[in-house]
Design a protein around this nucleic acid. Sequence first.
RNA 1: GCCCUCGUAGCCCAAUGGCAGAGGCAAGCGGCUUAAACCCGCUCCAGUAUGGGUUCGAGUCCCAUCGAGGGCACCA
Length: 823
Amino acid sequence: MTEERATQMPAPDVLQQKWLPVWEKLAPFRSGDLTDVRPKKYVLDMFPYPSGDLHMGHAEAYALGDVLARYWVQQGFNVLHPIGWDSFGLPAENAAIKRGLNPRSWTYENIELQRTSMQRYACSFDWDRVLITSDPEYYRWNQWLFLKMYEKGLAYRKASNVNWCNSCQTVLANEQVVAGLCERCDSAVSKKKLTQWYLKITDYAERLLNDMQQLEGVWPDKVLTMQRNWIGRSVGAEVKFQIEGIDEPVVVYTTRPDTLFGATFFVIAADSDLAYELAKDSAHFSEFEQYLEQTKKSTEIERLSTDRAKTGLSLNRFAINPVNGERLPIYVSDYVLADYGTGAIMAVPAHDQRDLDFAKEFKLSVIKVVETGEDNPAETFVATSGDGVLINSGMLNGLSKDAAIAKITEFLFEKDLGKAAVNYRLRDWLISRQRYWGTPIPIIHCDSCGEVPVPENQLPVELPDPTGLDLTPKGASPLGAATNWVVTKCPKCSAPAKRDPDTMDTFVDSSWYFLRYLNPKLDSAPFDVKLAAEWMPVGQYVGGVTHAILHLLYARFFTKVLFDLGFVNVTEPFSRLLNQGMVLMDGAAMSKSRGNLVRLSEELDEHGVDAIRMSMVFAGPPEDDIDWADVSPHGSKKFLARAWRFSKDVTSAVGVDAKTGDIELRKTTHKLINEAQQAVETYRFNVAVAKAMELVNAGRKAIDTGAGPADPAVRECAEATAVLVSLFAPYTAEEMWENLGHQPSVARAGWLKVEPELLVAESIVCVLQISGKIKSRIEVPIDITDIELEQLALSDYTMKTALAGVEVKKVIVRAPKLVNVVV
RNA sequence: GCCCUCGUAGCCCAAUGGCAGAGGCAAGCGGCUUAAACCCGCUCCAGUAUGGGUUCGAGUCCCAUCGAGGGCACCA
């Protein structure tokens, strides 16, 4: 009984008590030593929201990030692998309101909880670099960067119809509206005309698009596609239309200038300024106002539903088609968007389904100008959008679509009636929020001076104590009620003035945090420009695909702005991106209400950190979702115990020369380590784990029935295994390393240097085929020539018999692996 | 509706166009044990969703169909 115990791996809680203090003391992942000569590599995990303790999703993400971080350390790199907390934002604030607590204390308690869990989970973070975005030392620099953008005209305020979440009582960025619903609370989003702060991301649309070429192949295609869709570049033309009774022409944007002769009416977005101007003096003004009211009230969901009949209102006014002088009746409608293009369109019902739907509703004429060979849209009410021959189009008749676009664009330009134009779906980024728990916008509103930036030396503008403030969402920022805080002096004229009461979208915080990690305590600048030059770009970013658009687009935008400001010398922040999948249970996302929640802490208590980490990594490719029902932590545990016993059974002394060991085992070890290396570098971590299992199997066999426990090759195999295992199971690996007589930590032991000469076998089994069917196998030297191999193959007994009397058409030889005789 | 990805053993998953199995789970048999669990050893299991095509040779490349997942969808 006691004997058995001695050969058992210690229990998980014993391992924790033993190793956590050792790791804290040795800090194997400290990366800030200026004299460190190792080459640098920046591995970054997306930082968490402190909304409670870590859950299964965190466990997977951090296990995967750790494989990469620990791997590169073993390969001799100085790896920067930091962690922090994205601690501002609505979840924290809502939770705080619900529990009647200060968002601050609630947030920081959760941070401590998560920090402890991460340490227990053996995350290889550099704990010297922790940052917390709700610290004034951090958000001060949000404000500083905001002011830099303000100086450049990249931060500005405008009145516009914005997305409004009635439940969160705040505005939302376009990116936070998903299918017409609020990303956070899933309630319907409506429009509200408000004056808000924006960042001019549209100035960077072209660069955000073009620079994706650098990311091709190193970011998941899926993410690149989503970003391209989001930016939504389109090419077309702007066309000037005169409106009867108005001097200034109205410009419309179209991607189909070739169909200009087919325009039969004209539509203006109901909520645009132009619509108001035109309706103002008309007899239809009250109807217009009614329609406008209705438009604004309708939620995004209703507006987007495609099966809804088109609505609108005739203004009884006319636009003149510049190419043929036709009078086009002007309508207002909500199917035209005020903030895309110019908010007005020429309607070509024959070749645009939306226009056709509207024409059908209002009995407007349909003129076909592109003959595509399909049925007439005027009869079928199915618009044709493909290529064809232009008809009914004057000078364009007979041309193809592309030729017509080129010709008409040139014509319009020459006559000063329009020009080629590019448009983007991307809108400017709305960053002001009417909530407390965020970065105050560093602007002071003065009656005589207007918007005045807070002077740099007065930063940070700290959040006031929330005691006594009503944080419940009311549609206006709670900060507005903090009189002592709001009322201040104008920095310019010293007159009484008011602080801007809004706070910033938390995506501002996460748009540059990767730079702050380089020196999170720096108090003279947001980040150290010199360190940025050394460490950037992030070599490996790991996080969920949920941030495919929002966070990654914003971070790319900020990086380009910082590049333009001369603060960084890279234009893209993240050179490689890995999106991990989700952890599911029985095919569905885990949730308490669904009753399929698996608690991380319970799993860790039951199976230990190592078994859980290994299960996460081994379950499948990292991008795939893991179904916890398919995962066997018990299996992982068994393997780890086996690996541990392997290390325990090695009897040779530390430092024996592996070269004197069993050559076959050495070959196996080097081959497997080489394969594991390839697997890790191509994100096939599950395969790398399988290689570790093979190593243990090989080692076990060598000890029991082969070279024996004292053979130096067995030690080499065990040590290489310990290092490989350290990527997935740090505690077990540390024990193995100790069993093998080494000082901690195995984390810095170093990857086995693969000897190329051990990778090449002297002989190999060659497959002999007849017409693609395997007939025989022969063992041949690795360096056999094609000619030699062919002769050998044809003289093989089985082959000879099989080929007797048949005509050989061709012999394919792929030395040394295969010969195929075609008959 | 449009675009992308993926269908391999009972299950999770491997396989530079060249022997379908690396590894694991589950199952079965044997050993250890008073017994059970643990542990150790061995074994079983698919011709790769379907139908065509390219090739000396296809899980891998191409086309179509079916199925699953994801993205986009009044952006003129």
